[in-house]
Design a protein around this nucleic acid. Structure first.
Lengths: 137, 137
DNA sequence: TAAAGTAGGTACTTAAAAGTAACCAGTGCA
DNA sequence: TGCACTGGTTACTTTTAAGTACCTACTTTA
């Protein structure tokens, strides 16, 4: 068993026990599942969306998982849920202020990710060129 | 099935199919599993470490999962593996330059995470105070 | 002689997450 | 009349990830 006192503040301790010690990990756990960043991306770029619209735009997601994700994001106050008890009911989801707070971080992450991707693509194409040259000998 | 052409560049497409479309998601997938950020944290703050040391410092992790994570981080070139074929063999892991590139992003994420954590703690304590006042009436 | 440490690998089990399909109420539309 | 739309919920199945335990080969130490 891991003694929590011995763990640094940014630790992600054992899966069984005392999880929510590291705030960084807590935020990463919000973003990590499949679909989550995609949902946030749609709300960021397309603006507020109703449940059905969201489900159609995030093509392939099931209603169950979309509901789970939205509930989780709502609980973390990253998105806001507006329920109108009309018939049929009208539920609109929008990015809350906390969602917008993530933007600079996500943009920085995007810069890194794109740079690495192009570096890797370059490395792969160079490898391919090398093996073509080798085959030509 | 989702047509990849219809997906925005930051999409995290269906779990079955074409995953590695979104570079942001690709990086998040590196960081997300349990232990991963912890391993990087140890290498960032403590410097290069051997396998056994790492296993002891990341208390509670199994050799299997530590190996998996290190292999994944090595393949993504976040971590460098130095193998010395001595007897017994000596394997040292260190943070590669790509690992250091993540630092600004992780620091920004840490700022957000800590702010949210303290905000939430404050909200919880205010709620507790309110229910105490209510009980006192 | 036997245990402990080196850096893992392999097989099996378990638990969590995701996917699939059916269903709800109430109304509009053909 | 019967299907589709609204925003989900529930039960069931499948997939995936993680955990546990045991194994290697060689050396040092007690």
């Amino acid at each position: 068993m891991v003694t929590s006192a011995s763990l640094p503040k940014t630790a992600a301790p054992g899966p069984g026990g005392e999880r929510h010690e590291c705030p960084v990990d807590a935020v990463l756990r919000l973003l990590m599942g499949p679909w989550t960043t995609y949902i946030l991306y749609v709300l960021r770029t397309q603006g507020p969306r109703r449940f059905g619209e969201l489900k159609r735009e995030v093509g392939g997601i099931s209603a169950k998982v979309l509901t789970e994700r939205l509930r989780m994001l709502e609980e973390a106050r990253l998105v806001h849920r507006d329920y109108q008890a009309t018939i049929p009911p009208q539920v609109t989801y929008s990015l809350a202020s906390r969602g917008a707070e993530l933007n600079p971080m996500l943009d920085a992450l995007k810069d890194i990710a794109l740079r690495w991707q192009s570096e890797d693509a370059q490395a792969v194409s160079q490898q391919a060129m090398a093996s073509i040259r080798q085959a030509a000998e």
